[in-house]
Write a protein that binds this DNA or RNA. Sequence first.
DNA 1: GGCGACCATTGACCTGAGTCAATTCTACCT
DNA 2: AGGTAGAATTGACTCAGGTCAATGGTCGCC
Lengths: 233, 233
Amino acid sequence: MRSSDLPQVRLLPLFKSMSDASFEELMQVAYLQTFPAQLDLIHEGEPADFLYVVIEGCVELYARSNGREATMAMVHPFGTFILAAVLTDAVYLMSARTSARSKVLLLPSQGVREAFQNDDAFARSVVTELSFCYRAVVKEYKSLKLRTSVEQLANRLLRYNRESDSKSCTFELPYDKKTLASLLGMTPENLSRAFNTLKPYGVEVNGSQIHLSDLKSLEILAKPNPLIDERSK
Amino acid sequence: MRSSDLPQVRLLPLFKSMSDASFEELMQVAYLQTFPAQLDLIHEGEPADFLYVVIEGCVELYARSNGREATMAMVHPFGTFILAAVLTDAVYLMSARTSARSKVLLLPSQGVREAFQNDDAFARSVVTELSFCYRAVVKEYKSLKLRTSVEQLANRLLRYNRESDSKSCTFELPYDKKTLASLLGMTPENLSRAFNTLKPYGVEVNGSQIHLSDLKSLEILAKPNPLIDERSK
DNA sequence: GGCGACCATTGACCTGAGTCAATTCTACCT
DNA sequence: AGGTAGAATTGACTCAGGTCAATGGTCGCC
């Protein structure tokens, strides 16, 4: 790992309050690598050798079973993945591939567990991050169980709009539609139809450009729920 | 809390390696209560005032949104719930009600967070428990996304059979069928039909008694996956 | 013992979503 | 500019699962 990258990493929430000693020790065995898009990083079932931190780009977590594949989550800077497996020295439950060209920090599990033991501040950051990931999955699970496809898409669009700081109600979809469909638990065909269903509610689609011309009516349909849709809650 | 209950609690994985001092401090503000069945304990959206540990009985975690309700998980002795909300001082994401008459330990959030800060052994147990809960939800989420209703039911039956130590392939359903249906993400009517679909695979139902007379063939249908169905992985 | 409430089951029907196939669109490559 | 591969869309069809309604079963309670 190049020392010029260190300051950037040092400031991440996960490492910010760590002692200098633990940080240096951990970074001595860490790798910071840039991967092209669509590269498989890990496979479910493998022992958790590394903790991953996304520094740039975007990583897709997915899983396979019964002959099917589904996108489980997308990880953006500066999220981690597979923290629970690393801490309990278990196997990965999900596979991961880069969705775009991405810069990723790899921390050997053993080192993470040692730092966790030795550095209380780090331990606290880890618990915060773990709780955050946990709650994020619970929200996804709730969304899938309690909403129809159209409601899921509507809420997703409202969320992307909220998170794009533009006031114009226009934004880019962060992933291609195939990935978005899998993330929402549907087929690309059905996503396409869901967009059509939302047309009367002011959802205008042009490639990956979305414009929401009638927020009020879209919200009535979507019934957004902070306990599902707000990242921070 | 009665002091006669203390030894039992002291031996739980979560508290076993805690220092005597921290344990006593935490227990001084704890409640151990027995609740009748079908009693609401907490509601999603409320601030996380307590961490809950199920000592006896069974607690159902459920959520509501968009006019629907779904069972998210069942908690058995000696599982905890709402740990992530307590640690991050957030609101509950799920509601909880007793499914049977249950003995539950209530630990004030503030006390848990203090013990977490002051007692490293406890902090480690907490992280283990949190990771375990996290991975359990990921498995549920995978199951829901990757399996049909019938596959879900088949795997659930195989699991209950595995966990009942009887060699006879006969066991009791742990909850009533309504709850099981909601847990598996379907209606009671459809659960009933799913049982019928499984009849040719040796699934014999008599009220809440289940007998599996052809494990081989059921497994071929279910395609069990350790990364979804094994609690310990 | 009989009543009532609730759960479970079954059937008929409907709807949402997946599948398959054909077509269009887009981006990229030469 | 033309060609190609992959993505997105559309239509027709199928199927899984939900809804509604009727019936049967079980349990607790008076």
